[in-house]
């Protein structure tokens, strides 16, 4: 089981690192998806090894993938709108929502 979880941890760490360091919003979105997928992987692995008789983890993962797809569509739409408004997709160019 451990050999399945190690890639998941690596994926998650890569996602966090990418989210915190990249400037492009598309790259942020990709990092976000990476974190989400590592969580999905965990669901599947735990379901397969700890509760082999049931299917909940698998089904939950399918749901999570579907919702992630929808969420990505919304995020892309927001990014396109921001691009139209400010002319680039740099995350540091949308800092207006503060104190």
């Amino acid at each position: 089981m451990l050999w399945y979880l190690v890639p998941s941890v690596i994926m998650f760490a890569a996602g966090v690192y990418g989210f915190c360091t990249r400037k492009n919003m598309i790259a942020l979105l990709i990092s976000l998806e990476l974190m989400l997928n590592s969580a999905d992987l965990n669901f599947v692995v735990f379901n397969r090894f700890l509760f082999p008789g049931s299917m909940e983890g698998m089904v939950f993962t399918l749901f999570a993938i579907a919702i992630a797809a929808a969420e990505t569509a919304i995020a892309i739409a927001i990014i396109i709108n921001i691009y139209r408004a400010v002319g680039n997709t740099d995350i540091n160019s949308v800092k207006q929502m503060k104190f």
Binding site: V16, F19, I91, K95, Q96, M97, K98
Partner: peptide, 17 residues
């Protein structure tokens, strides 16, 4: 403490993490 609300989403994520 209001300076902590910088508007930069990446700072928030680091604090959250």
């Amino acid at each position: 403490i209001k300076g902590m609300q910088s508007g930069s989403i990446q700072t928030y994520v680091i604090w959250y993490f």
